[in-house]
Each structure stands twice: as structure tokens, then as C-alpha cells.
């Protein structure tokens, strides 16, 4: 949709803000299913919406990425201490990028990466990919910003109709 112009996105909004983003390669999508080509597609989308210079990759990444610890039922297993110990590797990986936002294109990853930031006081924010795509297009509604930090919470809010309409 981005390549054929149906989604008109760009990174102009972040040219001066220079908010840094990293991305989590979901094990299920990348290593276990479609491999490095889909990881490249993911980076194409992220770089397009946040700006090449504002994207910082984790190391290691793509098919070689570490699991965040949210998969395999771990989030529901009732073993939060073990799950967070497992996730410490992912937390350190994210912190090393210096990014203030981690984009997680997987539901399990979102829940786990978000929890890791809260638990270890990482200070980074965890967002779905679609949130940032819509933010970049100026179409992210006021109620659709739960996971944005204060720096982006008020940015590019689209027009809302008067209540008496």
C-alpha cells in the first residue's frame, strides 16, 4: 500500500523532533514464517514513517533476533518472575539502541515489551506499527493514543467535529 502510493506516508513530522525508534522482529512472523524478506519489508515501512536517521536496529536482529519472552503462552503461564528474567535480554537490547519507542508488530510482543519497560523502569514506550503509520499520516484520533508518550501524545491530532453537530 505504501509502495504503490495508496498510503501517503512520510517522515516529515519527525525531521526536527528526531524521536528515535527501534523495532522488534516477531519470532512468529520473521524467523518461524516468512524470514528475512519480511523483516526487510518491516524496516522499509518503519524507515518510511519515522525517517531513516531516526531508526535504530537492535543487535542481533531479523531472523537472528531474540524472543521477547511473550510467546509460547509465557504471558498467561503465571510465572511473571521467570518471564521478566527471560525478557531482561530483550530489555537490555532495546535500551542499548537508545530509542524512546519500541515498535512491536505482534500482539504478544507488545504486551511483553511494554511490561518490561514498566518493570525495569526503561522509560521507552511500546507501540503497535499501525499507531505510528496513522500518526505519520495525521489520522491518529485522540482516543487512539494510549501507548504514545507525552512527547507525541498531542502531535498531529486530526480535526474533531463539534459536539453539538
Amino acid at each position: 500500500m505504501i509502495r504503490d502510493g495508496r498510503l501517503k506516508v512520510n517522515s516529515d513530522w519527525n525531521k526536527d523532533l528526531k524521536v528515535k525508534f527501534t523495532v522488534q522482529d516477531p519470532c512468529q512472523l520473521v524467523r518461524k514464517s516468512l524470514g528475512d524478506p519480511v523483516a526487510e519489508d518491516l524496516r522499509f515501512v518503519v524507515r518510511t514513517v519515522v525517517g531513516e536517521e531516526n531508526f535504530v536496529d537492535m543487535t542481533p536482529n531479523r531472523s537472528n533476533n531474540y524472543c521477547c519472552g511473550g510467546g509460547g503462552g509465557f504471558l498467561q503461564s503465571g510465572m511473571p518472575e521467570a518471564r521478566r528474567a527471560y525478557g531482561k535480554l530483550k530489555f537490555d537490547q532495546i535500551m542499548a539502541t537508545g530509542a524512546t519507542y519500541a515498535i512491536t508488530p505482534c500482539h504478544n510482543c507488545h504486551a511483553q515489551v511494554h511490561d518490561l519497560s514498566e518493570h525495569y523502569d526503561g522509560g521507552y514506550h511500546t507501540v503497535h506499527l499501525w499507531t505510528i503509520i496513522c500518526l505519520a499520516m495525521g489520522i491518529l484520533g485522540p482516543n487512539e493514543r494510549t501507548y504514545l508518550g507525552p512527547d507525541l501524545a498531542e502531535l498531529l491530532i486530526p480535526e474533531i467535529k463539534e459536539a453539538d453537530e
Binding site: R31, N65, C67, G72, S77
Partner: peptide, 16 residues
Amino acid sequence: SDWVWMCTMCQRCIYV
């Protein structure tokens, strides 16, 4: 061992 519930079966071990 409860470890079987702590491995997420992410398959990185197979990959490497």
C-alpha cells in the same frame, strides 16, 4: 521441570 513452560519455542536454537 517447569522450564518447559519458560521456553517460548521461539526456534532461535534451531536457527543457530
